[in-house]
Every structure is written in structure tokens, then in C-alpha cells.
Design a protein around this nucleic acid. Sequence first.
DNA 1: CAGTGGTCTAGACCACCGA
DNA 2: CGGTGGTCTAGACCACTGG
Lengths: 236, 236
Amino acid sequence: MSVSHLPAYEQVKTFVKAQITSGVWQAGDTVPSESALQQQFGVSRMTVNRAVKELAAEGLVTRLRGSGTVVAQWHRISSMLAVRDIHEEVIERGHTHSCRVLRLEVVVADSALVQALGVPLGAPVFHSRIVHLEDGVAIQLEDRHVNPAVAPDYLTVDFQTTTPTQYLFASAPLTEARYSIEAAQPSAAEAKSLGIGRTEPCLVITRCTVSGAHVASQARLVYPGMRYSLRGNFQL
Amino acid sequence: MSVSHLPAYEQVKTFVKAQITSGVWQAGDTVPSESALQQQFGVSRMTVNRAVKELAAEGLVTRLRGSGTVVAQWHRISSMLAVRDIHEEVIERGHTHSCRVLRLEVVVADSALVQALGVPLGAPVFHSRIVHLEDGVAIQLEDRHVNPAVAPDYLTVDFQTTTPTQYLFASAPLTEARYSIEAAQPSAAEAKSLGIGRTEPCLVITRCTVSGAHVASQARLVYPGMRYSLRGNFQL
DNA sequence: CAGTGGTCTAGACCACCGA
DNA sequence: CGGTGGTCTAGACCACTGG
């Protein structure tokens, strides 16, 4: 009922989104051309063009004139904060990335994890704690709890060569994310892992990623305040 | 030369932006209807529609079907961070806003201000320092330097009834903004003004706003980490 | 009611890419 | 070269708003 009353371009968008979020079309895959979608939906090309153009503006796909449309490698949050790989981020700045895996284990879900991940109390949950280094200097402590339902092989991954973000992207398409940014003091353990003082202020990003019906993981990302800042620029 | 080769919809967008950033059309003013712009530029309505639709997506104007298009009250940065009034923000949460003006004075530009505002060394610059309270609790320390060229009457404003953001919006249309978000310890004076401990981490937003050819002001906004966080949500 | 924006069509020309 | 996306037109119908 209600679906059929949606604008045609919204129906095209919904279809493409569904293919991406369900994993049928993976990052890097090519999206059908405008003329193909036009025939599939029986609408004019302008309508298809609008749909795909808006998806490109939202960052879900990338378009190249003369070449085609492909599923984007990563997805934006509000166009400023990106759920992206710290490895790529560091490489993009022309620096080298390395990491130390501090923990990789199974823990038992306490009430906080029940809330965050939607698993039963006492259920097994994967936990990883990794320090990411940029040119040998610690810039991020990644403390992550992963829902085994979406990434059953999480504990067997070699996180020296693959980051958790990379692995989770590949195993469970991102459909939703919630985040908060705040300033906080690191815990004693966090300060030690990052090699900073206990009172040094840190930028803390807490992020829950959702894949379909499951919460895929909850991450607490701690950045030393002296070594990291979010920057932006805006022009009318 | 190059201007005439721009797409028609870009030319319409540029025209509308210019009217807004130059202050000819103020916040709340109605923008000419699509049919009016269509005749003015000699293009089809779809082209005008695209131009104005994109401006609405960017947050510059607000559209109401059946009513018309009006210039938006405030402008977004990357759709997450908004250059908006803290007064409105607090009111929107259903709380009461008040403030204490700690300083309102003329200072002499040092080298940092020369860099930031683009004024000559030793030139007079307005300076205000205001603590904003939400339900009586300090949530933001606003330390601002203002270019006298864009707001000559800045020192005579009653900041108990008008916030600096409100006044600057009205006197100098925003055309550009640069910002950074980081975690830092407050200075001794900042901690005292906010009524927090010297070692409490704070979220610090530094923002430069540009109006036309001038940098209008530079603001350092300090939020106690325990009382403020930026939150967001993102769905595919 | 007349005017507004929201959507849609069936064409069209162009610049660009890869083979 | 054929296929791609980028842009544009001159109409059209609709839902909504205001007087």
C-alpha cells in the first residue's frame, strides 16, 4: 500500500539501498547503469538520474562520467564523521600505520553489553583491544565488542594485516550507526596503553554500528587530545 | 568566459547565494518563486527547481509546498555541526538559558589575531568573554574576537538579551566557516569561569567565521566534558 | 481560488571513458 | 566507437497553502 504511493525516485533509491545493505552489491561493485534501471522500473531516465544522484550525494555510491556507478568503499555519518578505516586514514596522510593487539578474547555479556548489542545476559561476546600507531606514535585506542552473530570468525582474524573496521565492513554491511563525541580523561589502563599521562584529555568517540537486524559492534575510540583533532571547513 | 560555461542550475544557485551572502535577502525573506526565477534566467522550471532544491539540501533556504521559499535562519556546517545560537539550542531542549558577560572590551591585535582575522598588527579588535548557563549550570565559555570592520557596534550590544551569534548573523551574513574539535584541558581562568576543576577535560571547538571578504570573528568555545557531548545518528 | 513547490515524462545534446 | 553519466527542455499533473 504505502510503498506504492512513494515517489518513483524514492522507490529506486530504496531498491539500490537494499541491494547494498543486504550485501548483494558489495563495495566496489558496479551499480546498473541509468538506462538499465530505467527499463527495470519503467520510469524516465531523469527519475533514475535523480535517485542515483541523491545516493551519490549521500556518499553511498560513487559516480564517474563515462565509466559508471560503483558502490562506495565507506559510508559517511552526517558527511563529517566517517565510519572508515583508520588504516586508510593514516595512509592517506602519507604516514605509516601499525598496531598492537592487546586483547582478543571472548567475554561474557554484562548488562551494559546486553543493552548495547542486544544479546542475552551471559552470552559470549568477542572483545578486541588494539592500539593504532601513526609513524610509531599511538593515536587511537580501539576497544571493541563484537556480536558473534554477525562475525563468527572474528577471533581468527590477523589484525596485523586487517583492521577490525575492514573485517566488519566485509562481513556485515553497515546499515546504521549511532555515535557520540565527548572529552574525557582516559582510564589508567587506557593512558598506559596510549603512553600518555592519566590527566591528559582525550577525544572519545563511542560508536554503535548496526547491520540489518543485528547490532554488529560497539566501539570506544580514544584519541589523545594532543595528537588528534577533527577538522572541517564549510563554504556557502 | 568561465562563468558562462557553468551549468545553468549552478548559475541560478550562485545568484541566490550571492543575494543571501551579500545581505540583500535576509534570513526570513522570501526567495522569488520558481516561475519568477525561470523567467529571469530564461531556463526551464526543472532547472530552477534543481538549483533551489540543492540550496534547500545545503540548508541555505527552507521550502514549503504551497507557501514558498524563504532564507533559512541559520546555516549548517557539514550538516552535523551547526553555526547556530546557543540560546536557541538550550531553549529547544526545553531548558532556560542565561549568561554572564565577563569581558567586553577593545584589545590590540597581536600576531595570532593578525593571522586569524586578517587585521593589521596593533589594530583594535573587539573581545568578548561570556559564560552560557543551561538551567543555571555553565555549559559553554565563549571567548570571541570580532573584526570591527564587520560589526562596528559590537561593544554596545546588550548580550543579556542578544547573543553574539545572533548579533553577528544579523550584521554580517555568514559565507564560510572553518572549525576544529579537540579535547583539551581548560586554562586556569577558563576552569574558574566554568566552575570546574583544572584537570577536567573539555571539548574545545575553535571556529572562524567569514563574511564576504572579511573574517568576521574567531571564537573559542569550551564545553565541560562532563556536561556536553556531540551526538549523531546515521541511517542508510 | 490562484500560486506554490513536488514530481514526472520523453525526448535531446554533450563530455567523457574504455575498448 | 558505443555506453556512461551530466545537463537541459517544455510541457504535465498533483498536493498543498493562502486569501
